[in-house]
Simulated assay, not measured.
Amino acid sequence: MPQDLRLRTLEKDDLEFLHKLYNDPNVMDYWFAESHYSFQLIKNRFENNLESTEHRQFILCSNGERIGFVGLFSISQRHRNAEFAIMIDPGQQGNGYAEPATRLAVDYAFKTLNLHKLFLHADKVNEKAIHIYEKVGFQTEGVLREHVYVNGEYHDLVTMSIFQ
């Protein structure tokens, strides 16, 4: 694991970093969203989610430097599951952060939140990400054919999960 890699709670002073990620088409294409987020929208969402029990949002850091963002969304206490999502700053991609960051999030979900299952959605063309998820223990549950529209074409969406 890269030295000093950790997840810390998303704070207000991280919103500029998040704004940069949310407006990068190379990042947002894999989140199946348009890369068009105003800073005010990001700030409003942050403020509206401060007391939410349905989301946990983290900044991935290494030696005090922001590396990426990790989120657990739609946390269901009743069903004990949540959706996992991650984005690594494009300037930090290829440095081996994604796998240990995913492991940190899985550990938090299972050991702290006592969730039973984490699931995620990945673009089938994102083979590197799928490989990392498989190394961590995620398994494919199914494929939704031509489910997302990215850069003028439809892509298959792979649904994966891991159990506690």
Rank of each mutant, 00 (worst) to 15 (best):
5 L>E: 01
51 E>W: 02
56 R>W: 03
25 P>Y: 10
86 I>L: 13
60 L>S: 08
49 N>A: 14
154 Y>K: 13
59 I>E: 03
33 A>N: 14
53 T>G: 12
22 Y>L: 10
76 S>F: 08
105 A>N: 06
104 L>P: 02
155 H>W: 05
6 R>P: 01
117 K>L: 01
147 H>M: 11
59 I>A: 12
152 G>F: 01
79 H>G: 09
100 P>Q: 00
99 E>L: 08
54 E>V: 07
139 Q>E: 05
129 A>H: 05
70 V>N: 11
79 H>I: 04
19 H>R: 10
37 Y>T: 03
119 F>T: 09
80 R>T: 03
70 V>F: 11
90 P>M: 12
28 M>Y: 07
75 I>Q: 10
134 E>G: 09
116 H>F: 08
119 F>C: 11
128 K>M: 04
138 F>P: 00
158 V>I: 12
23 N>H: 13
107 D>I: 01
129 A>M: 05
29 D>I: 12
61 C>M: 12
24 D>G: 08
41 L>M: 14
112 T>N: 11
7 L>H: 02
140 T>K: 15
99 E>N: 06
99 E>W: 01
35 S>R: 13
45 R>V: 00
64 G>Y: 02
113 L>K: 01
42 I>C: 12
16 E>Y: 05
73 F>T: 09
102 T>I: 08
6 R>V: 06
142 G>D: 02
124 K>W: 03
159 T>C: 15
74 S>H: 14
37 Y>N: 12
80 R>F: 06
127 E>G: 11
146 E>F: 04
110 F>Y: 03
47 E>I: 04
30 Y>T: 02
65 E>C: 08
75 I>P: 05
71 G>E: 05
142 G>R: 12
68 G>T: 00
46 F>M: 07
105 A>T: 03
53 T>A: 10
131 H>K: 13
161 S>V: 04
12 K>S: 05
13 D>A: 12
79 H>R: 15
7 L>S: 00
6 R>K: 15
67 I>C: 15
38 S>G: 06
50 L>C: 07
105 A>L: 08
139 Q>A: 14
34 E>L: 07
155 H>I: 02
143 V>I: 15
15 L>D: 00
6 R>C: 09
137 G>P: 03
163 F>C: 14
68 G>I: 03
129 A>E: 04
69 F>T: 08
83 E>N: 11
138 F>A: 10
109 A>K: 09
89 D>T: 09
69 F>E: 04
137 G>A: 10
24 D>V: 09
58 F>G: 09
81 N>V: 01
15 L>G: 10
79 H>A: 15
28 M>Q: 09
54 E>G: 13
3 Q>K: 11
40 Q>L: 11
82 A>F: 01
127 E>C: 03
49 N>M: 11
2 P>K: 14
76 S>T: 04
73 F>A: 12
6 R>G: 07
137 G>M: 02
82 A>D: 03
48 N>I: 06
151 N>G: 10
13 D>I: 04
48 N>G: 09
3 Q>F: 02
9 T>R: 13
80 R>P: 03
143 V>P: 11
145 R>S: 04
164 Q>S: 15
22 Y>I: 06
